[in-house]
């Protein structure tokens, strides 16, 4: 049980995202993907569930090549879920309705959401502190509330592997910490895997066990956060000087 990337080479146009990338994401692990803007972090996440572009054996999910999920898209959606960076809110829709779409992969064609499904959605709203707003229209929510709604939809989808594209976007400091705490708890207690694109190396350092760094030009490094997050690697990653500050509780890295 894991997502394995086997000698995966990806490019956008003639720019390489990763060259010969081999890494394994296991349940119980919280991964951060770090890299500068436009290096291809989101593309990498999206490709991990893109059945239509999958080549055989480059991406293996639970011992089965992603390619083979072509005819089993709903099954894949019960295993891997993706929190997108941005969502559109063009139609009127209540918060609870928006959350309930997460149950789509579990329902057969003519099946309606059961009380069980509603309960799962309401639990997700509770976890993201939105239960009081469940009857509100989504387009009346603030940016941070919308972000938590996106997460609630993903929690309702209840996958094993959580692909998270900047989950802390639009969130204030407290909500950032709350969100990452609850993700961390979910990963540890329920044995889920988290693979998160994030721009804050300090939050990655604080919450993640492992990191995947994308340096551009296809070069990458994967391993434990403790071994990879250091001044030298961060300077190479972001192309600016980095200073390390620490006290007895925390170590932070800031641009020098």
């Amino acid at each position: 049980m894991s997502i394995q990337l086997n000698r995966l080479t990806l490019s956008i146009g003639n720019k390489k995202i990763c060259d010969d990338l081999t890494v394994e994401f296991n349940p119980g692990e919280f991964w951060a993907i770090l890299g500068i803007n436009g290096v291809g972090k989101s593309t990498l996440l999206h490709r991990m569930i893109a059945v239509s572009t999958a080549m055989s054996d480059e991406i293996i999910i639970d011992d089965k090549s992603l390619f083979n999920y072509r005819q089993h898209r709903k099954l894949l959606a019960t295993k891997v879920g993706l929190l997108l960076q941005e969502y559109e809110y063009n139609f009127p829709c209540s918060v609870l309705e928006a959350t309930l779409i997460g149950r789509h992969p579990y329902l057969s064609q003519w099946q309606w959401e059961s009380n069980e499904d509603i309960k799962i959605a309401e639990d997700a709203l509770k976890q993201t502190d939105l239960l009081d707003l469940k009857d509100r229209q989504v387009n009346t929510l603030s940016g941070g509330e919308k972000r938590r709604l996106n997460l609630a939809t993903l929690l309702t989808q209840d996958p094993l592997y959580y692909l998270l594209d900047e989950p802390t976007n639009h969130l204030d400091l407290k909500a950032q910490i709350n969100t990452l705490n609850s993700l961390k708890k979910l990963i540890n207690d329920n044995n889920k895997a988290g693979i998160m694109v994030i721009h804050d190396a300090n939050l990655a350092n604080r919450y993640c066990d492992n990191v995947l760094m994308l340096f551009g030009d296809g070069e990458w490094a994967a391993g434990s956060a403790a071994s990879l997050i250091n001044t030298a690697n961060l300077e190479r990653l972001y192309g600016c000087t980095i200073e390390k500050l620490s006290n007895e509780h925390h170590t932070i890295y800031i641009p020098g």
Binding site: I49, A77, G81
Partner: peptide, 23 residues
Amino acid sequence: LPLCRQLNVLIWGDAQASSLGIN
């Protein structure tokens, strides 16, 4: 009529719909 629940998901965009198992 058989597409209706898929339409509920599709209005959230292609990426969201395909991540929820829709072709």
